[in-house]
Each structure stands twice: as structure tokens, then as C-alpha cells.
Design a protein around this nucleic acid. Structure first.
Length: 705
DNA sequence: GAGCACTGC
């Protein structure tokens, strides 16, 4: 249990000296340095927990729990006493807790009720290089907090490969400490040129390794489920054709997020003797899951990334080149147990000249409505929210988009000030539209139903069907007899599904029979419970969270619920075109869109879809689609359109536009011909000029250091 | 009439 062998313990004195003299310290610690488990213990030993406790944030739930367990074990204390953790739905901490591990999202929630975090003497932001949206918000908040609490707060920012200089500069040139890790060397091998098909190329490389290289498992990074399934099949086939006894046995595992947990666990079972394991994975194996025994890594150089375009409101999932940080992270997976090799299926010139230093941070790729609402609810009086000091500031387009959305759903007023409704919304751990829906539903007496819809939409992947590769395409009838939303659309269908499940006593088998994901449905149940509690708290008065079965008729019309949804999704409205079933969005910029073909929204006898709908999100695949739609009435839409007409972005943003700094106009990387991805990979991002522009601004800033 | 990288409150 002794941790003396960890490199970081040798640096204890140096770390303490630096922390004592500085309010903020950046610690660069490679994998295996022990920073996640040791740093908190060092500070604890040296008396930093006498006046308060230590918070250590993690971007992932499992990490928060497992690191806390480890530290409790090393200190010989019971988990939840001196050492604890706090994640959504699970608080294992108490009055006694001196070291608390929590997800970055949990710390943001704590800030809502205690903006100065007075209970903590030290805050450690771990794995900051991942640049999760929440960590980025925390970085900005910490910068303010150290100024306010300079006498009694220490902030440590730790990460693996983060650009330490950039973060140090952000925190007024604070010191940077480097702690070496215990990784073994990994030899990098590059392809002479980009392969025509990275799938074929990975396959060939995998077989070469299997035939020529000594024992050791192989981890192959691919972009998505489809490619993984193809790869697994081809690899098994080709290995089957190898001459018997010519090499080791082999076993091939797929690994991606949508596999059921039982299948994911398989990769952690030891290989049979004399057998080489091949693991074909998405970037889930880059950070979330660590597999022992990997000696060879094959890196295709691409990743799927979701991006939001603030001018159209459309999300897209693009296959893009990985960053150098990601490439190094992937390579590092080969050196955990002994020296390894990493086969990069691209030339070294690509690695050196084309790849971005670091992945574009999530904050530059997301809708910021929730983030802006959160910051507004903190009442940071001394600064303008739109000039909030982010490590990588989002574009004006993105911030203005967030303001427009928040205004349309009454979270802020025409001057950009947070409203009472907005404050309540910020308390709810939901997309702003869903928070707004709950508050409206409470007024209209259909909160119970709205809670269910919000919970179901929060988990997303409830359906397993559609995925079935049914060759019988003529069969138009739904495979199961799940409810169909009574024609009103997908929100209502989700409600009905949950209600049916509740009626059979939340029976697991009912879910399996109906091709629903057990894990996500249970998660929805937890979320619903949590939302229920929060609504009871913020609504003050009595809240009706029981189902309202008063009138059979009104239940089938779902009148109140649809009205609440219309109010909540006032920023996500669409109007049907006169002559066909296409829609145009009713927002800042109108967009031609269609109902996603998987929707259960029904047309009338004449084949016409409803005149007005609200949608959960716009997703661009082959075309822009509205995913999860609900029919609403024109009378409910009109007041929202009036609001839209009145909207004045200059007032909303408090004159932000007037003082705008000219945007960067350079164009360092538009030559895309070299960038073309091989077969089965889409054009790497940026058919979209706005996202491209965001990337370029980001690049330009990085280039200026 | 289409197709889903990964997290988190």
C-alpha cells in the first residue's frame, strides 16, 4: 500500500515549497506519476486540511470513485469518513471528510449554493488537459476565486500533457512543475503516405504484428461502431486463414460505448495462454478505459467529434483528424507494462505539421445556453458575463446564440438580465429548454408528465431497435407494440413508454421484450427522482408530481404537456412549408429542415404534418433533421414569435457588439486536398465555414504564443 | 425515409 515508489513522492518538498509561495500552481504529471492519488495526500500531510478540506475534480464518475477508494485504502480510513467522493446520485462524504473527489459537474453545482467554496482550502482540477466544458468553466471561476480568497485558497491544476505555458499565462504566469511518469518508451512507426483505406491498412498492420512480432496485445483505434464491426469480422476471417501453428492463437474484441456493459467487461478478462488479444476500439480506450497488457497500438489518426454551429443551430458528427495530444495519448497506451510500439497510419509530416497541438476544447464546439445561464445565475457582479475570462474564449456568434435562446425561453430579460424563471432553471441539471418546460408544466398541472419526458430525453439512447439490420425492409409495421405518442410526436412517445414500464412495476423483462436499454431506463428513473426533489425545493409550494389521470380525454390530447413543451422549446420552433412536409425553423436565422424519419409524428388524413412543431435538436447527417419533435398549436407559438420580433441582440448582450475586437481573418489551413480522408471516413469536418472559422481562430491564438 | 465518438449535472 506504500506509495513511496511513485515519482511524485520524490517531489514532495519542491511541490510544497511552490504551493506555499503561490496561490496557483500547474503540475504536469505524466501517466503513472501518481498525481491523482498522491497530491491530495501530500497536502493533507502538510497541514492543508486543518482550515478546510481538499476538493479534487475528475471529468468522469468512475475515476472519482476509484481514486477516492484508492486514497482511503492508502490512508487506512473508511470511505466516506476522512476520504470521500461525490458524484451525481451518490454522495459518499460527511462532516469528517478532508479529501473529497468529485466530478467537475458536481463542483459546479456546489458553487451554486456556496459561490466562494469556503469549505475548501485547496481545489485541485485534475485531468485539465481534457478540457471538458465543465473544467473550462471551473478554470475561469478559479481565476476569480483566487483573487477573492488569496489568503486562504490554493488552486492546483494538474494534467498529463496540457500546454502548461498557456494555463500558466492564464493564471498570471504561475509556476509550472513537471513530474515524470513511469511510462515505458513507445517506438512510433509512421506510414509513408496516408492509406487509401485506413480500414485495410489497419487490418494489414494488425496481421503483420501478429505474424512477426513477439507476444503482446494489440489495441486498434477506429472511429466508430460500423468500422469496428467490419474490422472485427475481417480480422477474425484473415487470422482464421493463417497456417495453423504458424503463430499464436488470437482473439478479437470490439470495444465501444454502445456495447452492453457485459460485452465491455470482456476486454478486462485475461487472455488464454498462448493467445494474442486484439482490441478494436473507439477513443473510449484513449482515456475512459485502461486495458492492461497492450504492447502494440494502431492509430488511424481520426476521431468522430460532435460540433455545434451557433449560426444555424445544427449539430453534426464529423470525422476529424486527431490532435497531437490525442496521438500521444493513444501511443502511451502501448507503454504501460513494458516498452511498446505505435503504428501511426499517417506520415510523420502529418503528425508534425497538420495535426492540431490539442483537441479543440469542448467549449468551442458546444451550444452555450446552459453555460451562460449558469454563469448568469452566479451574479458575478464585477464583470460582464460576455467577457468572462475563459482559457479559450468562445466566439461572439456562439455567445449571442446562447443569449437569444435564453431570452426566447424567458431565462433572461430583454436587457440580458437573469429572470426569476432563469434562476429556477439554473438549479435544474437539464438543458435550458427542458428546465423551462418543467417550470411551465408545474403551472399547467402536468409536472409529473414533464418530469418523465425530461428524464427520458436526458438519457437519449433508450431504443435498441432500428439498429437491427433487418433485411426485410418492406415491413413497415413497428417491430414491437410500443406506444406511438398518439401521433403527437416523440416526446409523448417517450412519456408513454416510461408510463407503460411504470405500470408493470418497472419490470426489467418488459424492457428486454421491448428492445429497450435496461441501463438507460434505470438511469432515467434516477434522474426523474432527482428532478422531482429539486422541483419540490425550488417551487416552494406544493408540487403535483403524481400522474394526472383525471380526464381520459385530456390525457390523450396531452394538451397541457404540449403547451409546456412549446413554452420550454420556444427557441426550437419550426413551421411547416405550405406545399409540402418540409419545415423552416423560426429562429434568428431560418433553416430548412425535415422531421427525422425515425420520428413517430403523424400526418393528418391529407398527409399533412402539423403546422407547428418544437424539436429537441437539429442534427445534420445527409441533411438537417429535427430529432425528437412534438406537435404544438399555432395559438401557443404566436406570443413567442412576437418576442422574437422584439429581440435586440445589442440590448441582450449589453453592448457587446459595439466594443467588439476585430476578429481574426487569416486563413492558415484552408488547403484541404491533402486532408482528404480515405474511404469510409467522411471529409474531415469543415464543409462548414463557421466551424472552420472557429478552428482557425483557435489555431491563430495558439500560434501567437 | 435514415444510421449514433465520448463525457457530465
Amino acid at each position: 500500500m506504500a506509495a513511496d515508489h511513485l515519482p511524485i513522492t520524490k517531489f514532495e518538498d519542491k511541490i510544497m515549497e511552490t504551493v506555499k509561495a503561490n496561490p496557483v500552481v500547474v503540475i504536469i504529471g505524466e501517466t503513472g506519476s501518481g498525481k491523482s492519488t498522491q497530491l491530495s495526500q501530500i497536502l493533507h500531510r502538510r497541514g492543508y486540511t486543518r482550515s478546510g478540506s481538499i476538493a479534487v475534480t475528475q471529468p468522469r464518475r468512475v475515476a472519482a470513485v476509484s481514486v477516492a477508494r484508492r486514497v482511503a485504502l492508502e490512508l487506512g480510513v473508511r470511505l466516506g469518513d476522512e476520504v470521500g467522493y461525490s458524484i451525481r446520485f451518490e454522495d459518499q462524504s460527511s462532516e469528517k471528510t478532508r479529501i473529497k473527489y468529485l466530478t467537475d459537474g458536481c463542483l459546479l453545482r456546489e458553487i451554486l449554493s456556496n459561490p466562494e467554496l469556503n469549505q475548501y482550502s485547496v481545489i485541485i482540477l485534475d485531468e485539465a488537459h481534457e478540457r471538458s466544458l465543465n473544467t473550462d468553466i471551473l478554470l475561469g471561476l478559479m481565476k476569480r476565486l483566487v483573487k477573492m480568497r488569496s489568503s486562504n485558497l490554493k488552486v492546483l491544476i494538474t494534467s498529463a500533457t496540457l500546454d502548461g505555458v498557456k494555463v500558466s499565462r492564464f493564471f498570471s504566469d504561475c509556476p509550472i512543475l513537471n513530474v515524470p511518469g513511469t511510462l515505458f518508451p513507445v517506438e512510433k512507426l509512421y506510414s509513408a503516405k496516408r492509406p487509401a483505406s485506413y480500414l485495410e491498412s489497419s487490418l494489414q498492420t494488425a496481421l503483420d504484428i501478429h505474424i512477426r512480432e513477439p507476444p503482446g496485445d494489440v489495441l486498434i483505434f477506429m472511429t466508430g461502431q460500423d468500422d469496428i464491426e467490419k474490422m472485427v469480422a475481417k480480422l477474425e476471417e484473415r487470422i482464421g486463414h493463417l497456417e495453423e501453428g504458424s503463430c499464436l492463437d488470437a482473439i478479437v474484441y470490439p470495444l465501444h460505448g454502445s456495447l452492453p456493459p457485459e460485452a465491455q467487461v470482456l476486454v478486462f478478462s485475461p487472455a488464454p495462454p498462448n493467445c494474442r488479444r486484439f482490441i478494436v476500439a473507439t477513443n473510449i480506450a484513449e482515456t475512459s478505459l485502461t486495458i492492461d497488457g497492450i504492447v502494440y497500438v494502431i492509430d488511424c489518426g481520426y476521431v468522430k467529434q460532435r460540433q455545434y454551429n451557433p449560426t444555424t443551430g445544427i449539430y453534426s458528427l464529423d470525422t476529424v483528424q486527431i490532435s497531437r495530444v490525442q496521438a500521444d495519448q493513444r501511443a502511451g497506451r502501448a507503454g504501460r507494462t513494458r516498452p511498446g510500439k505505435c503504428y501511426r497510419l499517417y506520415p510523420s509530416s502529418v503528425y508534425l505539421e497538420e495535426l492540431l497541438d490539442a483537441t479543440v476544447p469542448e467549449i468551442l464546439r458546444s451550444s452555450l445556453a446552459g453555460c451562460v445561464l449558469y454563469l448568469k445565475s452566479l451574479d458575478l457582479t464585477d464583470i460582464d458575463i460576455l467577457r468572462f475570462d475563459f482559457l479559450d474564449p468562445p466566439s461572439d456568434d456562439s455567445l449571442e446564440d446562447a443569449l437569444r435562446q435564453l431570452y426566447l425561453i424567458d431565462a433572461i430579460d430583454e436587457n440580458g438580465l437573469i429572470t426569476d424563471i432563469g434562476r429556477k432553471m439554473a438549479e435544474l441539471p437539464l438543458d435550458p429548454s427542458l428546465s423551462r418546460t418543467l417550470i411551465e408544466a408545474n403551472e399547467l398541472g402536468c409536472l409529473s408528465q414533464a418530469l418523465t419526458v425530461a428524464a427520458m430525453l436526458s438519457v437519449e439512447t433508450t431504443f435498441l431497435h432500428n439498429r437491427r439490420k433487418d433485411k426485410d425492409k418492406k415491413r413497415k409495421q413497428p417491430v414491437s407494440d410500443l406506444p406511438n405518442g398518439s401521433g403527437w410526436g416523440d416526446h409523448i412517445q417517450l412519456l408513454q413508454i416510461y408510463e407503460n414500464w411504470a405500470e408493470v412495476g418497472y419490470d426489467r423483462n418488459w424492457l428486454i421484450d421491448n428492445d429497450l436499454q435496461v441501463r438507460s431506463m434505470k438511469f432515467a428513473k434516477d434522474i426523474r427522482k432527482q428532478l422531482c426533489q429539486i422541483m419540490q425545493k425550488i417551487a416552494k409550494g406544493a408540487v403535483d408530481v403524481q400522474s394526472n389521470h383525471r380526464h381520459k380525454e385530456s390525457r390523450l390530447q396531452y394538451h397541457g404537456l404540449r403547451k409546456a413543451l412549446c413554452q420550454g422549446y420556444g427557441n426550437l420552433l419550426a413551421e411547416r412549408m405550405i406545399h409540402h412536409n418540409g419545415y423552416r425553423t423560426l429562429g434568428h436565422r431560418s433553416q430548412l429542415v425535415q422531421v427525422h424519419p425515425s420520428s413517430v409524428l403523424e400526418s393528418d388524413e391529407d398527409g399533412r404534418l402539423p403546422d407547428y412543431v418544437v424539436y429537441h435538436e437539429l442534427v445534420a447527417t445527409s441533411r438537417p433533421f429535427m430529432r425528437n419533435v412534438c406537435a404544438v398549436e399555432m395559438a401557443w407559438v404566436m406570443p413567442i414569435l412576437k418576442k422574437l420580433e422584439k429581440l435586440d441582440i445589442n440590448k441582450l448582450s449589453g453592448g457587446m457588439r459595439a466594443n467588439k475586437v476585430p476578429e481574426f481573418n487569416g486563413n492558415p489551413q484552408t488547403e484541404s486536398s491533402k486532408n482528404e480522408a480515405p474511404e469510409s471516413v467522411m471529409e474531415p469536418d469543415n464543409h462548414d465555414s463557421k466551424i472552420q472559422a472557429a478552428r482557425e481562430r483557435y489555431l491563430a491564438r495558439k500560434g501567437k504564443k
